[in-house]
Design a protein around this nucleic acid. Structure first.
Length: 108
DNA sequence: AAGATGACAGGCG
DNA sequence: CCGCCTGCCATCT
């Protein structure tokens, strides 16, 4: 569980600048596995248990929806962290998603 | 080895 | 605009 697919995801997520968010599909694409978007999400679930600290709260689905907020403790933590970083969140959705969206393909 | 699962994505009604 | 179904792929039991 170290040099696995998840580790690749963590690296990308860790590169996400503060106040920015990205989508699972974008990360999957950056890893060269656009169809493995689900694996990205699964990797995030392990992010909290993984040795490496991963800002999973900066990762949302393609609609900017905080799908995995329930995996946080408390679930509201995800939204709070985002707002604290300057990301507007409304109804579990990222406001101005296009503005705060960070494309790993461009950075990497 | 086979089946079930999942923080998704895209398409359809 | 919202909700449901299917596809995809890696991991786990």
């Amino acid at each position: 569980m170290d040099d696995s697919f998840y580790d690749q995801v963590y690296e990308v997520v860790r590169l996400i600048p503060k106040g920015r968010v990205t989508s699972y599909g974008a990360i999957a694409k950056a890893l060269g596995a656009a169809k493995s978007s689900r694996m990205v999400g699964h990797a995030m679930a392990f992010a909290g248990t993984s040795k490496t600290k991963v800002p999973a709260h900066r990762v949302v689905n393609s609609s900017g929806l905080l799908t995995g907020k329930f995996h946080f403790s408390p679930p509201s933590l995800m939204q709070e962290l985002l707002e604290k970083e300057g990301v507007r969140v409304e109804k579990d959705k990222v406001k101005d998603f296009k503005k705060v969206f960070w494309d790993p393909l461009i950075e990497i």
